[in-house]
Amino acid sequence: MTAPRDLPGHRALVREAGKVHLRLRPTPYPSPGELLVTTPVAGLCGTDIQMLRGLRDDPAPVIGHEGVVRVVAAGPGIPASLAPGTPVVVNPTHGDDPSFLLGHNVDGLLQEFTLIPATAVRGGLVVPLEQVPDAELGTLVEPLAAVRYALGLLAAARPRTLVVYGDGNIGQLAVRAARGLLGTGVRVLLVHHTPEGRRWSERHPVTGTEAVGGEAPGGLPPLGDGPTAALLATPRDGTLDALASALRLGGGGNLTVDLFGGLPPGAASALLPGVDLAAVRAANCAGRPVPAVFTEATTAEGRRVRLTGHRGVGNGHLLEAAAELWQHPELYRDLVTHVVEPAEAARIMNGLAAGRRRTVDGNRLLKLAVRFAPAPAPPREKW
C-alpha cells in the first residue's frame, strides 16, 4: 500500500466554538493496523445532545457513534475478515484502553469517512455483520445493544413488573425489547417526563406497555406482588430524580434498579447513604465481567434493593441488536423520527444545543439519522 498524494476531502459535522458546522475535511488514510470506514447514515444520541449543550466536556470535534459502516481501506496487518467492502459496526467503548471512546475523545461517525485507530482494531471493536439492517435502522444498533445489556442484567431478578423511566429513544427501545428478553408475561410501564413524550407514545403504542406520567394526573398504578425491575433511561441530569422515584416503588417483591442513564459528577442519593453510584454503574463495562456485578444496598427508609448498571456494550450485544433489527424492522422503524442531509443536521443540532426541547419542525425527535450521500472511495491505486 502506498501513501496517497492527494486524497479527496469529505464532509463532516464539526463542533467549533459552540456551534456545529458542515465542513470539508481531508480524508485520512490508514496506517498499519488502522481502518478507514464510510458511513451511509449516522445517528445522534442523547449523550451527543448533552455534549452539544455543554453538559459534557468530551473533546472530539466530530461526535457520533451510531451506525452500520463499511470498510473502505485497510492498513497493513488487518485480517481478511475486515477487507474493504465489509459491513461492520464499531463498538464505541474500549474496555481496556480509555484513550478510545468513539465520538467522545476520538472523532466519530458524523462524517463521510472515519479513521478507526489500531487500538480499536486490535481490541476487536470492529465487528463484521452478517445480518445487516438497512442504513436508517443501523443507527439503532448500538443503543438497542445497550438496552439489551441492561435488560439482560435485570432478567436475573425474574421481574414480574418492569418500570422504565424516560420517554426518549432509550426508553422506547426498552419497552419494545422487554418482552423478548424478560418474557411475554412481564408487565411493562413507561414513565414519561414530558407531555410531548406521553402524546408520542399514545400515537405509537407498544403492545403490553402502559403509558404513565407526562401530562396525565396521578402517580404510578399499583404494582402488585412479585419482583420489580426499574430501568432509568433518563438524561444524566434526571437520573437522581428517577432513582428516588424507583426506590419508593410499591409492590411486595424485591426491587432491582439499573442506572442506565448516566450520572452527573459526584452524584449521590440521600436515599442510599454510603453508596457510590458511579462505581455501581462502572462495575460492568463492555460486557464484562461475567457474571455481572450487582450491589446490595439498604435505603434510608430500610428497604433492601439491588443496584446495577453498565458502561458500553459487548460485541455480542451488538450482533444480537443488529440481528433483531434485521429480523423485526417493523417493531423499531418508527423510532427513527428524522432522516436528514448533513446541512439540515447541522441546523437541527444547533437548535438542540440552544434549548431543552426535543421537538424539531413540529415533530418529537427520538432519533436523528444523518444521511451522507454515498461518497466514492479514494482510488485504489492511491492506497
Results as ranks from 00 to 15, higher is better:
Leu247Pro: 08
Gln131Phe: 15
Leu307Trp: 13
Leu181Glu: 12
Pro98Cys: 03
Val164Phe: 01
Ala80Asn: 13
Asp167Tyr: 06
Gly123Leu: 03
Gly18Arg: 05
Ala270Gly: 12
Thr86Pro: 07
Phe294Trp: 05
Gly208Ile: 01
Gln327Trp: 07
Val340Ser: 13
Asp258Gln: 02
Ser245Arg: 12
Gly362Val: 07
Leu190Gly: 13
Glu112Lys: 03
Gly54Phe: 04
Pro221Tyr: 11
Pro378Arg: 09
Gly171Met: 00
Val336Asp: 10
Pro59Arg: 06
Val206Ala: 05
Gly9Cys: 10
Pro159Cys: 08
Asn284Arg: 02
Thr234Arg: 00
Pro376Thr: 05
Thr2Trp: 14
His328Thr: 15
Gly274Ile: 14
Gly54Tyr: 03
Ile78His: 12
Val257Thr: 11
Val164Cys: 03
Thr161Gly: 00
Val164His: 03
Tyr29Lys: 12
Thr86Asn: 07
Ala42Asp: 11
Gly224Phe: 00
Pro32His: 13
Leu232Gln: 04
Gly250Cys: 00
Ala12Thr: 14
Val280Trp: 00
Arg122Ala: 10
Leu162Cys: 10
Gly166Ala: 01
Arg11Glu: 04
Ala369Leu: 01
Ala369Arg: 01
Leu52Gly: 04
Leu144Lys: 09
Pro235Lys: 05
Ser31Asp: 13
Gly214Gln: 06
Pro235Ile: 06
Leu154Ala: 07
Asn284Ile: 06
Ala286Arg: 07
Ala229Ile: 07
Gly95Cys: 07
Arg311Ser: 13
Ala150Gln: 02
Tyr332Gly: 04
Gly218Phe: 02
Arg380Tyr: 11
Val186Arg: 05
Ala145Ile: 05
Arg347Cys: 10
Gly218Ala: 03
Pro329Asp: 10
Gly208Asp: 03
Ala292Ile: 14
Ala278Arg: 12
Gly75Val: 05
Pro92Ile: 07
Gly108Glu: 05
Gly185Glu: 09
Leu307Asp: 11
Val106Asp: 15
Asp258Met: 02
